[in-house]
C-alpha cells in the first residue's frame, strides 16, 4: 500500500497548520484537514484517505467517537488510524489500540519527525 493521502482531524487551527506543513512539506503527503468529527464524517469518504490521524480531545465528538463513526462507513472501515494525544499512559495506549488504532503519537510532536513517526507506525501495523 502506498501511503499518500492523510485525513487529519484536529480542532486546533495552529496545530493543523504545523501538522500540515510537517506532513506535506517534510513528509510529502497529501493532507486534508478537518476541524471536527462532524466535518470529517462529511468529507472523509470524498477524500478517500490512506490514513486517519485523529486528535483525541476535541469539543463535541472526540477522537475515539469520530473513529467509531468513520469505521461505520464501508469505504473507511479498513483505513488505518493513528491518535495524537498528550495522554500516552500505557493503559491509554492499550485503549486506543483496542479501538482499532495502529498507535499513538505523543503531543507535543516534533514536526520534523512527525512524517517518519507516521510511516514507522504504518509499516509496523502492516
Amino acid at each position: 500500500m502506498v501511503l499518500q493521502r492523510i485525513l487529519l482531524v484536529e480542532d486546533e487551527a495552529d496545530i493543523q497548520a504545523v501538522a500540515r506543513v510537517a506532513l506535506e512539506m517534510v513528509g510529502g503527503f497529501e493532507v486534508q484537514v478537518c476541524s471536527s468529527g462532524q466535518q470529517a464524517l462529511q468529507e472523509a469518504e470524498a477524500f478517500s484517505p490512506d490514513l486517519l490521524v485523529l486528535d483525541v480531545m476535541m469539543p463535541g465528538m472526540d477522537g475515539p467517537d469520530t473513529l467509531k463513526a468513520l469505521r461505520e462507513r464501508s469505504t473507511l472501515a479498513e483505513v488505518p488510524a493513528i491518535f495524537m494525544t498528550a495522554k500516552v499512559q500505557p493503559a491509554e495506549v492499550e485503549y486506543y489500540r483496542s479501538l482499532g488504532a495502529l498507535g499513538v503519537i505523543a503531543k507535543p510532536f516534533d514536526p520534523m519527525m512527525l512524517a517518519n513517526q507516521v510511516r514507522q507506525l504504518v509499516e509496523e501495523g502492516a
Partner: peptide, 24 residues
Amino acid sequence: VSHELRTPLTSIAGALGLLAGGVM
C-alpha cells in the same frame, strides 16, 4: 495547565521546529 498550556506550546514548538528544520 497541562492542556491549555501544552496545546499552544505544541503549535509554537512545532512551528519553530519546522522553521529551524529549514522546511520552508
